[in-house]
């Protein structure tokens, strides 16, 4: 099996890295290129950059910062934010991104997934899912980059994951909204359920606060574990995390 992937997630607004709690109250945590280089040096396996306001503002992310990141790192990275067309995805890939993650636009027009998979291959197309727990089930939310625009789509998360992977999404980033930024651990039962439903790699997201949370995600079958706060705030150095996982018998790249 490939090594368990540790994936710092960088929320981007106006070309800067920001971080909020449960999708609100974003504060500036620094320059994109500096963060990208720091995580590469620390041993991150991959990076994800989300332009958190692009989709809600009806625009696509800016390839200019994608190009700046691509120049300085030699590990894979995905970008996300308002990509609504084949040409917008092509601009990201041409700028040096390895994958494009789509979320709200895929919900608006699911055929977008097929169009991107056909032209660029499934391995370039990541489905971002914002999953919200309510009344004992999980529901897909849309436009979560803006508090005013966030809406419940009425789609069950598992149904959407099955549909989207059937259309050609090559990876799923499962973000459990109630866990975002609160550091109480990933939603393990929900992650297990999505891993079982999806034939493609699943990345756990939302809630990481301690090394054992990462272990739980990998034991649940996640191919990668994504986190922001613990890495940005230097609560959990990546080399220490990987050493812990290796001691638990989980293969990591070191």
């Amino acid at each position: 099996m490939p090594a368990a992937r540790i994936i710092p997630c960088l929320d981007v607004r106006d070309g800067r890295v920001v971080k909020g709690v449960q999708f609100r109250d974003h504060r500036d945590v620094g320059d994109i290129v500096e963060h990208a280089m720091r995580y590469r040096e620390e041993g991150a396996d991959e990076l994800v950059f989300y332009d958190i306001s692009a989709s809600a503002e009806g625009r696509s992310l800016d390839p200019e910062w994608v190009r700046r990141v691509a120049r300085v790192i030699d590990i894979p990275f995905a970008v996300a934010g308002g990509v609504r067309s084949r040409d917008q995805a092509a601009a990201c890939l041409d700028a040096g991104a390895d994958k494009v993650s789509i979320n709200s636009p895929a919900l608006e027009r699911p055929a977008l997934i097929e169009e991107l998979a056909r032209d660029f291959g499934s391995q370039c197309v990541v489905l971002g899912v914002d999953s919200f727990e309510r009344e004992g089930d999980y529901w897909v939310h849309q436009y979560t980059g803006s508090l005013e625009k966030t809406r419940d789509t009425g789609l069950r998360t598992l149904d959407w994951v099955v549909e989207a992977t059937g259309r050609g999404a090559g990876e799923v980033v499962l973000n459990c909204m109630r866990r975002d930024g609160v550091r109480t651990g990933y939603d393990i039962p929900h992650t297990c359920a999505v891993v079982a439903a999806a034939p493609v790699p699943v990345i756990a997201s939302g809630g990481a606060g301690a090394p054992e949370h990462f272990r739980e995600a990998f034991e649940a079958g996640a191919s990668g574990a994504l986190a922001a706060t613990v890495f940005h705030d230097r609560i959990l150095p990546i080399p220490d995390l990987k050493e812990y996982l290796a001691r638990c018998g989980i293969e990591t790249r070191r």
Partner: peptide, 15 residues
């Protein structure tokens, strides 16, 4: 071929 615990695409760092 995808199998339980071995999703396709093969994505990530392999030795």
């Amino acid at each position: 071929e995808a199998a339980p615990g071995r999703p396709v695409p093969h994505m990530g760092w392999s030795r």
